[in-house]
Amino acid sequence: MAIIITDECINCDACISECPNNAIYEPGEEWSYADETALSGTITLPSNGSEIDADEENEPISDEFYFIVPDKCTECKGFHDEPQCASVCPVDCCVPDENFEETDDQLLSKKAWLHGE
C-alpha cells in the first residue's frame, strides 16, 4: 500500500528529500507524474488504467501539510528495505494508506513504470 502523511505533520521537510520517486510535495504545491520520473506525455495509470498527461500540473492534495501522491509511492520497494519517509519522520505521521493497498509485485511494477525500467 502507499504511504500517507497524516494531519499531525509539522512540515519539517525531513521526508521530501528521502523519497526516491519524488512522490512527496510541499503543502499547496502543484504536482505532476513527470516530476523527477521517466514519465512524459500520455501515460496509462497502473492503478486504474486511465490515460492522462504525465506533464500536466495537478492540484495539491493538501494545502496544510506535506502530502504523498499515491500513484507515485512505492513504499521505497526496490530502493530500500522500508519507507524512508516513515524512517526519518520525527512525529511518525507517515503511515500506510489503507485506501491504496498493493502487493510487493505491484509496488515493484510501479517502480519500473515510474523509472522506465
Rank of each mutant, 00 (worst) to 15 (best):
N22K: 14
N22V: 11
N22D: 14
N22G: 15
A23G: 02
I24G: 02
I24A: 05
I24S: 01
I24N: 01
I24L: 06
I24T: 02
Y25E: 03
Y25A: 03
Y25T: 03
E26P: 08
E26K: 10
E26L: 04
E26F: 02
P27V: 10
P27Q: 14
P27M: 10
G28V: 14
E30V: 05
E30D: 03
W31R: 06
W31I: 05
S32F: 10
Y33L: 15
Y33K: 12
A34I: 03
D35P: 05
D35K: 14
E36G: 00
E36F: 00
E36Y: 00
T37N: 13
T37L: 09
T37I: 07
T37H: 10
A38K: 06
L39C: 00
L39E: 00
S40H: 15
S40M: 06
S40I: 04
S40Y: 09
T42C: 09
T42P: 02
T42F: 06
T42Y: 05
T42M: 11
I43W: 00
I43D: 00
I43V: 02
I43H: 00
T44K: 14
L45A: 07
L45H: 07
P46Y: 01
P46C: 03
P46F: 01
S47N: 11
S47T: 12
N48E: 02
N48W: 05
G49E: 11
G49H: 14
S50A: 07
S50F: 10
S50L: 10
E51F: 04
E51V: 07
I52D: 06
I52S: 08
I52C: 11
I52F: 07
I52M: 12
D53Q: 14
D53L: 11
D53K: 12
D55A: 13
E56K: 15
E57F: 00
E57D: 04
N58T: 09
E59G: 10
E59Y: 07
E59I: 11
E59C: 10
E59N: 14
E59P: 08
E59D: 15
P60M: 12
P60D: 10
I61Q: 12
S62Y: 01
S62G: 03
D63P: 01
D63Y: 15
D63E: 13
D63M: 07
E64W: 09
F65M: 06
F65L: 08
F65K: 09
F65C: 09
F65P: 07
F65A: 04
Y66R: 12
Y66S: 12
F67L: 01
F67P: 03
I68D: 00
I68T: 04
I68Y: 00
I68H: 01
I68C: 03
I68E: 01
V69I: 06
V69K: 05
V69N: 04
V69S: 03
P70G: 13
D71G: 01
K72P: 10
T74C: 03
E75P: 10
E75R: 15
E75G: 11
E75N: 13
C76N: 05
C76W: 00
C76H: 02
K77M: 13
H80G: 03
H80Y: 12
D81Q: 15
E82D: 14
Q84V: 06
Q84C: 07
Q84W: 11
Q84H: 09
Q84T: 08
C85Y: 01
C85I: 10
C85V: 12
A86Q: 12
A86N: 13
A86W: 06
A86P: 05
C89G: 09
P90C: 06
P90H: 07
